[in-house]
Design a protein around this nucleic acid. Structure first.
Lengths: 100, 100
DNA sequence: CGGTTATATAGCCAAGTAGCAATTTAAGAG
DNA sequence: CTCTTAAATTGCTACTTGGCTATATAACCG
């Protein structure tokens, strides 16, 4: 699973949001997500395979945290589109200003 | 299908890339994509339902173009993550500089 | 050791989807 | 009207996935 597919699922985006506040044990995420524990575990595995999170052991807990590198890959695709369209909208505004 | 799911599929990202050069008939996209015509048509329908492209008729052709609004929705989710991690990386660099 | 807690895995099901070939719809062209 | 071209829809299959329950693994506690 690549990063694009990984962030396509709302629960996985929510996990990444929760991990913005720092490293968290899997159990915290289960409490926050209204899906069952194995479901969260499966999402965490997919996020790990997509390179979006990393995990380290702490006793019997697993502490997850964001691995930002692959988010950059998404931005790398998205940015040219945003820049292109920002340019078009700016041009449109300029055009409308001229007409006034 | 929302915008996140829509861009999870490589052929659909490629379609959006191709449409950056401007409005194009569906047939152009079929030629560029190495999947069959009905497949492209289906992807275009999903992109339309996700609000990522619009279409207008030109005789028997259908001209597709990007609708940038929903790309902004993706950026709206992604940006806080990127900013957060850019900040962390900057802090790390500063820390390493100090140690020298 | 046995018991408890935290997490992962296995096994299953229902739903969605990406692909194709075949067909339909719609717009020109003659 | 007939033929052709452009695109969409239908019908199908194989695969994936997100959810669940049940079970396994693994670490800590006594």
């Amino acid at each position: 699973m690549d990063a694009f597919e990984a962030i396509a699922e709302p629960n996985r985006r929510r996990i990444l949001d929760l991990l913005m506040s720092g490293e968290r044990p899997a159990g915290d995420l289960v409490g926050a997500l209204s899906i069952c524990q194995p479901g969260v575990s499966k999402h965490l595995r997919l996020l790990r395979e997509a390179g979006l999170v990393r995990v380290r052991a702490d006793g019997q807990r697993r502490l997850y945290s964001v691995e930002p590198r692959e988010l950059g890959a998404i931005e790398a695709w998205l940015r040219p589109h945003l820049e292109f369209w920002r340019g078009r909208l700016d041009a449109l505004e300029a055009h409308l200003d001229e007409e006034q």
